[in-house]
């Protein structure tokens, strides 16, 4: 792979979020990671409206018997190279829905998952951390330390919360 391709894939991440029967908590956190405080766009993240445009599928919620087929279909509509990120405890392994009659497994039983972001719901920092990790940038080591990424870094924010 040429340098240009590698660089452009790292710097431009188009995300298609899918709600596969989540409680909406995770979706709100994904939304929060796009808002002024966290602003995922500075990393090159863009939310696109069609799976055909997307590089990353952000799945929230446990895939139940209703959304399983839809999820598979959406995954198949994405062009290669495609990555799947499972956000939240539900997507990792049913979470609070474990034991329900229509669920009982995480998203990885339906489609291949590249990255898991745990939490119920995961914080926006965790989602940004995951996205950076996905494209091979380690936020604490390199990228966030630079001033250019913006005012809110992961550590700074956690200190402010206390």
């Amino acid at each position: 792979m040429s340098y240009l391709t590698r660089w452009s894939r790292k710097r431009s991440i188009w995300v298609f979020p899918v709600n596969a029967a989540s409680c909406n908590g995770c979706d709100i956190e994904i939304l929060a990671s796009l808002t002024p405080r966290y602003d995922a766009e500075r990393l090159g993240v863009e939310v696109v409206a069609s799976p055909r445009h997307a590089d990353v599928l952000l799945v929230t919620g446990t895939a139940n018997s209703m959304t399983r087929g839809i999820l598979k279909k959406i995954y198949e509509q994405m062009p290669e190279p495609r990555l799947v990120v499972a956000v939240g405890a539900c997507a990792l392994g049913a979470g609070v829905m474990r034991g329900c009659y229509n669920v009982g497994h995480g998203v990885d039983k339906v489609i291949p998952v590249n990255l898991f972001i745990p939490g119920c719901p995961p914080r926006p920092e965790a989602i940004l951390f995951g996205i950076l990790k996905l494209v091979g940038e380690h936020p604490r080591g390199q990228v966030v330390a630079k001033e250019q990424i913006g005012k809110v870094s992961t550590t700074e924010h956690e200190e402010g919360e206390k």
């Binding site: 240009l4 391709t5 660089w7 452009s8 894939r9 710097r11 431009s12 188009w14 808002t35 002024p36 602003d39 766009e41 500075r42 990393l43 090159g44 863009e46 055909r52 590089d55 509509q77 062009p79 290669e80 190279p81 990228v143 250019q148 990424i149 913006g150």
Partner: peptide, 28 residues
């Protein structure tokens, strides 16, 4: 918000990155 920041100085290469990434993807 502050918009694209990482691709090039102050993110000026963001559209270029988007363009080259798209050209390297699978055509459906």
């Amino acid at each position: 918000r502050i918009g694209p920041m990482l691709a090039g100085p102050r993110g000026i290469l963001q559209p270029v990155a988007d363009f080259f990434k798209l050209t390297s993807k699978e055509e459906i």
